[in-house]
Simulated assay, not measured.
Amino acid sequence: MTQEMSLSPETHALLGSAIAARLTYDFTSIRTTGRNESLDTYTCESNLVVTVKGINRNWTHDFEYEVSPVEDANANYEVRYDRSGLGPLAFGALGLLNQLNLEADNEVNGPRILQSLQEVRDQGGAGSYREGALLESLKARGIEAPAATQAHQQLALEAMGQLEDPGSVYRNVPQDILQAAQARQQAAFEEQQRLKDEEEQARREACAQSPDPAFDRNCM
């Protein structure tokens, strides 16, 4: 896997070490499927199971190979196989590369997101959509976020009470706060309408007292 990537020798060595440390494999259910008596060779099958530490899954694939005796000082048998049979190792390596990338990203950005979460809550943002986005980001990275404290929740309630439309900023706004905000909106609308009515009344009175209404802009 690493040899097929455009990596520096140093990065190649580090990545290879990381894969070797966390990727393990095993051959299970070994069985003989045939024998060539004249050549004294055996054909066999097994299951190649690949597991990566830190990833809750494994890869399994049928593995076929041929075994024949050899006269060698270091080995009694020679094993021949098609390299494509090692596909699970490639899948496992890719899975590990993704995991390593995630861990590297978490190491750099995880503390930053946690700090942002703390700042948002300290500013009364517990329960806000902004807090929700940060929590989702942490969840996607597999990082457990601390729960908001009662002090944070109280700050959020106070901040909600000061907004004209708390529902646009916060999730699950308490009903009494929503009703209070709606009442403030209605009062503000009525006050604005009262001022308009007063301005219109004043304009009409000025127009009525004008000596030449046709050229008085209060009457236009």
Score class of each variant (00 low, 15 high):
R35C: 10
S116M: 15
T33W: 06
K53Q: 13
S29A: 14
Q3S: 11
Q150M: 05
N218I: 04
N109P: 01
R57H: 13
D82W: 06
L135V: 03
N74C: 05
M5G: 09
Q153R: 08
P174L: 04
G125N: 01
L39Q: 08
A21Q: 14
E107C: 11
S6E: 08
L155R: 14
Q179W: 08
R112E: 08
T32A: 14
V173I: 13
G92E: 01
E119I: 07
D197R: 15
E64A: 08
W59K: 02
Q193M: 14
C207M: 08
V173T: 08
N218W: 04
H152C: 02
L117G: 00
L195H: 09
V108L: 12
R112I: 13
Q186I: 04
E107T: 11
Q99F: 07
A75F: 10
G85P: 02
A90E: 07
Y77K: 08
Q193A: 15
Q162G: 08
H61I: 01
A159M: 05
E10L: 09
E144D: 05
L138S: 03
I177D: 00
V70Y: 03
R35K: 14
F27T: 06
L134T: 02
E131R: 03
S38R: 10
A126W: 00
L134M: 14
E45Y: 02
A145L: 06
Q3F: 11
N74Q: 14
V49Q: 14
N106V: 10
N218F: 04
R31P: 02
R171F: 12
E191P: 03
R194P: 05
T2E: 05
Q118L: 09
Q99E: 15
N172T: 12
L178I: 07
N109W: 03
Q153I: 01
Q201I: 10
R57P: 03
A90S: 10
T33I: 15
E191R: 12
E10C: 09
H152I: 01
R112C: 06
G127V: 00
L97E: 04
D72P: 05
G16N: 10
G87Y: 12
Q99Y: 10
S116G: 13
Q99I: 06
A206Q: 03
M160W: 00
A151Q: 09
C44I: 05
A145R: 01
G95A: 09
Q186H: 11
Y42Q: 05
E119H: 11
T28R: 11
L48V: 12
T24H: 08
A133C: 03
H12W: 04
R121G: 00
S6P: 06
S6C: 07
D176K: 14
K53T: 07
I113D: 00
L100S: 01
G87L: 13
M220I: 07
L7N: 04
V70E: 06
H61R: 14
V52D: 00
R112M: 12
E71F: 09
L23D: 03
T51M: 12
L89C: 09
G87Q: 15
P211E: 10
P213W: 07
T51V: 12
